[in-house]
C-alpha cells in the first residue's frame, strides 16, 4: 500500500540572523512513513524537534533538504518543494492540523470557529454549524459557551474547540500536537475514541502525545526523533 505520508532524508535547521547568524540544526536524514489508517507517534524528550516535524509536514516550516510526500486520491505532492498554492490546496483536502494552542480569532463564536473549515470546504454554513455542535457536544463543551468567542475560555475548553475544529473535516492525514494536554480523563477518552474511529475509516495520524495512557491507546508505532536529532555544535 502507498504510504499516506513519507518523509525521505529530511533535514531542518534554523539560522538566526538576529543572533549573528547562529545556526541551529534540528533534524537530519529524517525518514519514516505513515500508512493509511495508521497512527504514528513521535517520541523523544521536549525540545528534540517533534513539533517542528509536524510543522514541516503542514508546510508551516521550510525544509533544508529532503522530500515530504503526501498522497491523496492517486496524487502525491511534495510539501517540501511545492509552491504555496499547492500546499494550501493540500491543507484544504488532505492535511489537518490540531495545534497545541488555539489561535484565537477576535469576536468569532466557538461554534463558528469549529464550523469554519467545513464551510470553507464548501459545505453550507448551517450544515457546518450542525456538525460543529455535534462535535462540541461530544467533547462536553457546555452549550452556553458555543455562542461565545473562546478568548476567555479555560485551557481545556479552548483545546476542545481546537480538537473539534481539527476533526470536523475528516482529512485523510491528521497532525496532532498534544491534543489532550489540558483535558480531563473523560475528554481524553473522547479524543481517543475520535482517533480510533477515524483510523478505522482510513485516516492516518502523526502525533505527539506526552500522556502515556493516550499514547498507548492510539499509537501503532513510535518514531524516536532522538535518532535523527543533530547535536548542537555549541
Amino acid at each position: 500500500m502507498t504510504p499516506r505520508l513519507e518523509l525521505r532524508s529530511v533535514a531542518k535547521s534554523f539560522t538566526m540572523h538576529r543572533r549573528g547568524g547562529l545556526h541551529l540544526p534540528v533534524v537530519a536524514d529524517l525518514s519514516f512513513s505513515v500508512a493509511p489508517g495508521e497512527c504514528v507517534v513521535l517520541g523523544g524528550p521536549s525540545g528534540i524537534g517533534k513539533s517542528s516535524i509536524l510543522k514541516m509536514v503542514y508546510g508551516n516550516y521550510a525544509v533544508d533538504r529532503g522530500e515530504i510526500l503526501v498522497a491523496n486520491d492517486n496524487t502525491v505532492i511534495d510539501v517540501a518543494s511545492a509552491g504555496p498554492r499547492a500546499v494550501l490546496a493540500a491543507r484544504q483536502t488532505t492535511i489537518g492540523y490540531v495545534s497545541q494552542f488555539l489561535r484565537v480569532v477576535p469576536r468569532v463564536a466557538a461554534r463558528d470557529i469549529v464550523a469554519e473549515p467545513l464551510a470553507a470546504a464548501g459545505v453550507e454554513r448551517s450544515l457546518a454549524r450542525d456538525r460543529a455542535e455535534v462535535l462540541l457536544r461530544r467533547l462536553n463543551l457546555p452549550e452556553r459557551l458555543w455562542q461565545l468567542p473562546p478568548a476567555t475560555f479555560s485551557g481545556g475548553e479552548q483545546q476542545r474547540v481546537n480538537v473539534a475544529r481539527g476533526f470536523i473535516c475528516g482529512r485523510p492525514l491528521m497532525l496532532l500536537d498534544e491534543p489532550t494536554a489540558s483535558l480531563d480523563a473523560a475528554n481524553r477518552q473522547v479524543v481517543i475514541d475520535l482517533i480510533g474511529e477515524a483510523k478505522a475509516a482510513g485516516t492516518s495520524f502523526l502525533g505527539i502525545f506526552h500522556d502515556e495512557e493516550v499514547r498507548d491507546a492510539v499509537a501503532d508505532r513510535i518514531v524516536d526523533v532522538a535518532r535523527f536529532a543533530v547535536p548542537s555544535a555549541s
Binding site: 508546510g59 508551516n60 516550516y61 504555496p84
Partner: peptide, 8 residues
C-alpha cells in the same frame, strides 16, 4: 505561505 513566512 503567510504562516510559513511568519513562523519560519
Amino acid at each position: 505561505l503567510t504562516d510559513r513566512v511568519l513562523d519560519d
